[in-house]
């Protein structure tokens, strides 16, 4: 009997790591939360990576899992800023790490990416077309991509998965 118990104990110990994942994405049930930024931001402004931004809830989300009212404030963080570059490369702002009261970070999905105007699409063909006539091809280097701007009218949707760990 003791041997069986020891064997079972060992089996559980060896199998334990396989069942001890910190996440479980089995559930597909999600609740969308629509947000908009409280103050417009742009890559023209002196914004920083890691900066916390405020967002307001656009629609009531009321059920047994989540209770958010229109106008409630939640926060998000600027994860990465890509500045606009030569040859029409647009600027980009990546926002993530949204924090909603009583909701774990691991239960939210909603990376928001906003890009500026992409001029790369026409600048590069132009550059190649002008290359046989030097130095006109290099002139396209001075064309920069558009700045990324998040307006207060932009709608950001974050998904809350209540059954995730």
């Amino acid at each position: 009997m003791n041997k069986i118990l020891t064997f079972l104990f060992c089996l559980i110990i060896f199998c334990l790591p396989a069942y001890c994942l910190e996440y479980d994405y089995s559930s597909t049930e999600s609740i969308p939360v629509k947000l908009s930024i409280t103050e417009e931001i742009s890559t023209k402004m002196p914004i920083l990576e890691g900066q916390i931004l405020k967002f307001k809830v656009l629609k009531d989300v009321q059920n047994d899992r989540l209770n958010l009212k229109k106008g409630d404030i939640v926060t998000g963080r600027i994860e990465c800023i890509i500045t606009s570059g030569m040859n029409g490369f647009p600027a980009e702002i990546i926002i993530d790490n949204f924090k909603i009261p009583y909701v774990k970070k691991s239960q939210l999905i909603g990376t928001y990416i906003k890009k500026g105007q992409n001029r790369f699409i026409w600048v590069y063909p132009l550059k190649f077309a002008l290359t046989p006539f030097p130095p006109t091809g290099s002139i396209t280097n001075i064309i920069k991509g558009g700045h990324a701007k998040i307006k207060t009218t932009d709608i950001i949707t974050v998904y809350y998965y209540p059954d995730w760990k």
Partner: peptide, 24 residues
């Protein structure tokens, strides 16, 4: 495809971005 082309054409720019995202 367009973003992939951007990464290839603007490799320097996206190298820095990739480093930062890697940290995250």
């Amino acid at each position: 495809r367009l973003d992939s082309l951007e990464v290839i054409a603007g490799s320097k720019k996206f190298e820095t971005t990739a480093d930062k995202r890697a940290v995250d």
